[in-house]
Design a protein around this nucleic acid. Structure first.
Lengths: 345, 345
DNA sequence: ATGAAAGCGCTAACAG
DNA sequence: CTGTTAGCGCTTTCAT
């Protein structure tokens, strides 16, 4: 029914060709130690001669390893995600693992379904990138001792192995930078409300304001959903406010780009009239004009670290689960400047 | 040895729980028609009660379907590729297929290895994005009747199902646009030399020049490898030429960005001093300043089309293989203008 | 050191 | 309509 069973070369063919038994071939293939070097040689030569390729399904079914890692991402349109995947992929490739990619579109049901499917045979480990509702399965993953690592999720549990940036501290730094530049009216474009990282960034913003005795202005906080268009819309709203902001801190670069669009559409200049600061440092933030001043998350590196953690859990189930925080420095480029001198009212 | 075999629920457990036979469960699971509705009901309820999840390995090994599609891409850093993947992923998700992603890093050996592995059990179909050396396996895929579709590869064979943009025509259009704007010295940043699409674009450029009786100037053609940094380097070289170009046609947007960097570094303005035209229309080309005038390839759509083709081949092996050419219109934004009046020598 | 044989979980004839 | 049975290709005891 599959339309393609044209004499696939199996382990049996190899056994026959090499004149050894079935299981000896398996041993050779799996790099067993105690095999007669001569036979080993014969097997390998038969393998190349016949062009044999293992059937992963069979191998895994029989209790072997699939060398497949599942990666769940919310979507693919976002460069932020692309960068993380790039890191994951690099690390996986050099460890000879394959990548099964799932896009959840932030639907909780898909997320859970995928996790189940993956843990039931397909994958040896799981990588979860900003999961929407890990609570639904993290606990069971944990008690089933299925290896997994969460990337960029402000855990609400304390057992999920995680690699994450210092969202709060980075937001504090960024806000402080703006304040010390002389800004007092600082707009904030909030990320997706239910994501821990968004909440932490907001917390950093708000608390820093207070630390500097700058009254928190609710009308200066708008929603950008971590996307460019919503960021644009949010900024338009910000510019309508009486006594509008002289600087805008966007929760990610994408919404910062949206902010740039709105500001320019208004005929204002960056950073002359308004300063803009982002978060993530996706590749295009360096090439956009003016260069975006932003908080760098080492995205690809975070992916690599996650893989490294995951593989160590797979190889050694006893390996203690870790939570790794990566540094998120402020990258100063050209989109922020002191506020323009107040044209007095 | 896998460290996680905690009483996985199998089809047998379901059979037992539902009080039916082994294969009846399989029939229900695979939506067979002739099953007693009562039993069918009992099976489903057992499935949910016990939280059963099929084991894809076993299913596929037994001749069933994996519902997995393999996608081979050269790398992940490129937004162009990200867009295609996005389209692929969307189409696959709505058809309930999963995506196994392989990054070849343009290494021919990896490419062939992956193709073999994928066709030997893992996947039901294959998508090849700008493959480096499809000759190595396309023929065998074809005669094994393994379903596959090539995306954006100027085939050198006439049997591989393909979805591709009109590279030659688009390049003609773009070049003509520049010429009609008044440009005579038009630089060309060449893409990866061994890729058919790069060659076609160059052909379009060159022939259009000739059609307008503009002498072809070899010193105006430089290599950009489809990347930003090489594009930057190439452009620096272009600007050194005696009688430098007043416009630059880059083989893709990424190298066009590199060109922008080089031009600006030189203190020149775009499009005032030099016009720049790209190819692809990746998302950031619209948001960069000035907006990049470029040839649009409907990347995500190409991915979707490829999936649609592939699935139809999988479902019906007799389905005739097609070659689909998508339109690649010129998107006019702000990076091109008539050449500055000649400051006479 | 190595062959024989038992399954892994599932699908697909084959009988009834 | 449904139960029985034979593998799919491989790993893994268990003998030898």
């Amino acid at each position: 029914m599959n339309g393609k069973r044209p004499a696939r070369v199996t382990i049996k063919d190899i056994a026959h060709e090499a004149g050894v038994s079935y299981s000896t071939v398996s041993r050779v293939l799996n790099h067993y130690e105690h095999v007669n070097p001569v036979k080993r040689q014969r097997v390998w030569s038969a393998v190349t001669r016949l062009g044999y390729v293992v059937n992963q399904q069979a191998r895994s079914l029989a209790g072997g390893h699939t060398r497949i890692i599942g990666l769940l991402v919310p979507e693919l349109g976002n460069p932020y995600i692309g960068e993380v995947i790039r890191g994951v992929d690099e690390a996986l490739a050099s460890a000879q693992y394959d990548l099964l990619l799932y896009t959840t579109h932030r639907q909780k049901t898909r997320e859970s379904t995928f996790v189940k499917a993956l843990t039931h045979g397909m994958a040896e480990g799981l990588l979860l990138l900003v999961p929407t509702e890990p609570q639904a399965y993290a606990e069971s993953l944990c008690q089933e001792e299925f290896p997994y690592v969460v990337i960029d999720h402000q855990g609400f549990d304390d057992y999920s192995p995680t690699v994450i940036g210092k969202n709060y501290e980075a937001a504090v730094n960024a806000t402080r930078y703006l304040i010390e530049l002389g800004h007092r009216r600082i707009g904030f474009i909030h990320g997706l409300r239910h994501l821990g990282s968004a909440i932490e960034r907001f917390r950093g913003y708000r608390q820093t304001l207070e630390a500097y005795n700058i009254p928190f202005a609710p009308e200066l906080v708008v929603d950008g959903d971590f996307l460019q268009w919503p960021g644009y819309l949010a900024t338009k709203q910000l510019l309508e406010v009486a006594d509008p902001p002289t600087a805008i801190f966007a929760s990610n670069d994408l919404s910062a780009f949206g902010a740039m669009d709105a500001v320019r559409e208004r005929g204002l200049t960056i950073p002359g009239d308004i300063s803009i600061l982002g978060f993530d440092d996706i590749p295009q933030s360096a090439s956009v004009r003016p260069g975006l001043t932003t908080v760098r998350q080492p995205l690809a590196e975070m992916g690599q670290i996650a893989v490294r953690m995951l593989l160590s859990y797979i190889e050694n189930p006893q390996h203690p689960r870790e939570r790794i925080e990566v540094n998120t420095p402020l990258i100063i480029r050209d989109s922020c400047a002191p506020p323009a001198p107040r044209r007095k009212a």
